[in-house]
Amino acid sequence: MTSTNGHSEKNGVAKSTWTTKAGLAQMLKGGVIMDVVTPEQAKIAEEAGACAVMALERVPADIRAQGGVARMSDPDLIRGIMEAVSIPVMAKARIGHFVEAQVLEALGADYIDESEVLTPADEQYHIEKQAFNVPFVCGARDLGEALRRIGEGAAMIRSKGEPGTGNIVEAVRHLRAITSQIRRLSVAPPEELMAIAKELGAPYELVREVAKNGKLPVVLFCAGGVATPADAALVMQLGAEGVFVGSGIFKSGDPARRGKAIVEAVTHFRDAGIIAEVSRGLGEPMSGLEIGKLPKEALMAGRGW
């Protein structure tokens, strides 16, 4: 991946290059990015060990419960959260809403999540992300979707899951889809790659790159349904390089404690003894939803393509 929006100055100094964009995601690996709706929550998240926070107006569980159009957050809220913590602050823009993204860039957000959690602004096109100096993270349900977003300029991918449900089943489905398709590519002979690119609906060059390296060209996190330390360790063992937790922390009985426990479970994701220890006495997890009982129009993962 050589694409970059970097602008060069003298002495070879270049800002907002592909390496700095994808590189920030590399620094977030092995960590937990927590949804927060107030500066106070952001501080709790930082104290719990979050490697970044996602600033938004309502967590997915509330968006789901309250309905209506979900949009980019109030700039004052994002600024307030940026001032409250020293860790990176991400913020969400609606799918296809490039002006919300421009506003978030103007505010100085560290990463923009073009997110299906918000109500899509464009059902045909995603944001052309190469044009921005700020890096983007996007959701994906399978490898084709991930590579389409990377083709548009996303510097980080998260499996979508089903946000605001506290149910890990969709996250597992999407993560497994991505990793198994990568495995298939890594053993495919070169003559099959164009046919696979066609089948995935993915850019050929990116398909070739994945086949060669056996991994995505950007960092892969998991999102959408993580509610417990064991959920977080599960997706890490399935190949996620880090975890987004949306409603799972601040919709639980003891956010500070649960947040810290999930952070520790992500670090020690192969150590069942530690996961057992940190899972003790966490209080009530967020109440979960069964995906099959949700009406089709209530599902968020299907937003975007």
Binding site: G6, N11, G12, V13, A14, K15, S16, T17, T19, T20, G23, L24, M27, M82, P88, E105, G108, A109, D110, Y111, N133, V134, P135
Partner: peptide, 28 residues
Amino acid sequence: FGRQLDSFEADLDIPAIGAEPFRTIFIR
């Protein structure tokens, strides 16, 4: 240096490791 938008790369001289400049990547 500021936030992510100020992250940058540059060629830097590091005499201890040789004359050839080193491509340095600064992220937040």
